[in-house]
Design a protein around this nucleic acid. Sequence first.
RNA 1: GGGGAAAUACCAAAGUGGCCAACUGGGGCAGACUGUAAAUCUGCUGUCGUACGACUUCGGAGGUUCGAAUCCUUCUUUCCCCA
Length: 383
Amino acid sequence: MADLRISMEFKISHRDKESQARAGTLITDHSEIQTPVFMPVGTAGSVKGVHQQELKNDVDAPIILGNTYHLYLRPGLEVLKGAGGLHSFINWDRSILTDSGGYQVFSLAANRKLKPEGAWFSSHIDGSKHIFTPENIVDTQRIIGADIMMAFDECTPWPCDLKYAKDSLKLTHQWLDRGLKQFHSTEAHYGHRQAFFPIVQGSVFKELRKESARYIADKGAEGNAIGGLSVGEPAEEMYAMIEVVNEILPDDKPRYLMGVGTPVNILEAISLGVDMFDCVMPTRNGRNGMLFTSEGIINIKNRKWMDDYSPIDTAGNSKVDMQYSKAYLRHLIISGEMLGMQIASLHNLAFYLWLVRKAFEEIKSGTFTTWKENIIPALSTRL
RNA sequence: GGGGAAAUACCAAAGUGGCCAACUGGGGCAGACUGUAAAUCUGCUGUCGUACGACUUCGGAGGUUCGAAUCCUUCUUUCCCCA
């Protein structure tokens, strides 16, 4: 079998002395990504409520996510193929990472059946039956054309007993080997390179996490992911898992913590040596009226903002922050106006991207840990 | 001028003798949301109390009844139809 083709470059430029935090650059054929990075989630070919143009010009996201399960069901592979891949279809010329559908194994558990060969799904759209295998998930991600493709895994639920976690991990590892094989024996379709990230599982069991991290580290992939966390377990358990896993995962490859999280989660994970993040929180919670700001967390639906005409966030990381008042945004969200959801999503994403860029700068200047400790109280304050 | 219908909590609207402090919507208040089946979901919404519960309510007044939002009398108000 051929060696993993080099499909991206990752260089760590700075390291924090007091923690495992690193600052670096990840380069794909579509964009240069400064790490740590937060990747907005665009499940179905759209970061909900935010234009691609805003993602570039205002949020300045170097990479966004897509989801294999959702894109496979709709618009479907023929449409994606006809468009020449997802980048072209959605008019996004920066990087894209696609989740494999492993999370849907977890979140759509009621609609699926796990078998050694793969996972049978009933479509949440029309009930039709489909099988996802480690192989066809690679093929599908080839058609989507993601710069970074994810291995097909089972994101274990929480709580979950040791036996279940063990069996699940075994399955995830078997699926990984099959996915890798498929990855190595297929080619990218659209002239740009694609990387393939394996995913560490093991629930909240340290020994399983270590075993999984060793198994994955051995594969020599260009980047590695930590999955199965932030599914309900206490944050401390999540941090403990990240810590043991990162002691084993290759230091010179990017580490991607899947599905995390709150601003505080992200800073803590950065200090544990994580480089990449994604989460629906800034967009979903934004649509539901929660704002992450430099001064704390705001539930803009609360009555107290009714006549607060101050800017959304005086730190002003996004153009909308100074353009609109809290009172106006509250009115829009309360009234169900779609503009409210758009502004909230844009603000939150801009805030998240500002946070990781700031983390980069602080790591670079050797002040990350102090800065982190100082900013955490504000980030977790409920206003 | 004549005939008919109706008045229920913030709004709309069920209930037509006890299971009613009163269905259900809406509105209001608060909470949840972490690789998006989510512009979604949950709770509360007469007063006091954490709660068991207690107390005051269904236009006003009076009455029938063991018991009334529900039946009777009367008053007030609103709406509709015919002149």
